[in-house]
Amino acid sequence: MTETPTRGPRVGLFATCLMNVFRPNVGFSAVKLLEDAGCTVEVPANQTCCGQPGYNSGDYDAARALARQVIEAFEHYDYIVGPSGSCMATIRHDYPVLFQNDDVWRPRAQALSEKSWELLSFLADVLHAAPADARYDGTVTYHDSCSGLRGLGIKGQPRALLGEVDGLKLKEMEDSEVCCGFGGTFCVKYPEISEKMVEDKVRNILASGADTLVGGDLGCLMNIAGRLKRIHAPVKVFHTAEVLAGLADGPGLAGAAKEAD
């Protein structure tokens, strides 16, 4: 590892639960992209989850408890950046709402909200960074995860960044903006409906002719990758950051060989 530059913003990396457990490679990709763009990256150890599962289950108290923890862990950084539109939309949009009647925490939530960024929009909109000589040989289709797309306006940025990857051909699928049926606990509470939705998504992916699916949220990607695997469809699945960082050289999500550390 190279020494981290001393100038450039100090970024706290939000290590999402799914990334932490299922896809460490996404974390390392995020670190590489941020450092390449001149950031100093730290990963605070006192972080867990953004609280969204509690919030979306209607347990606002639990969500607030988690939000306070995130605020405390990250508020001294210049930015909090995470490789998930879903978690970052929670921090940006929902934290201030959760504390709207709390004079102590509302300003802190608001302050964190304002410096919270989803990784790709941070790279594109704040740092104006381009991926450094990444290469990916394949035809890629991009799934617009809902929270990133509608919550944070992420649509052009990942496509523009992917467009700069050597060898990569981007091919749009039909209905790329339609939900894949993940929806957090939705996918286990209503598996049949979720199945129908992911089936529609998979059909569009296959119809696009792409050999690789990328996206910005591991929840959606695991759902889609799991379904592709179940029906033995030979489409590789990566987080956009892995492709941009040039770290999509191993197997994709649910891919056959084990990841190397």
Partner: peptide, 28 residues
């Protein structure tokens, strides 16, 4: 987690978590 696996495979984790690996690498 049959709600998950009735419908789709569960992608396997790598074995060690990101935080674990990160602390190993950066020694923070």
């Amino acid at each position: 987690a049959s709600g998950w696996t009735d419908v789709r495979d569960l992608p396997a984790p790598a074995g060690r978590t990101f935080l674990e690996l990160w602390q190993g690498k950066r020694g923070q």
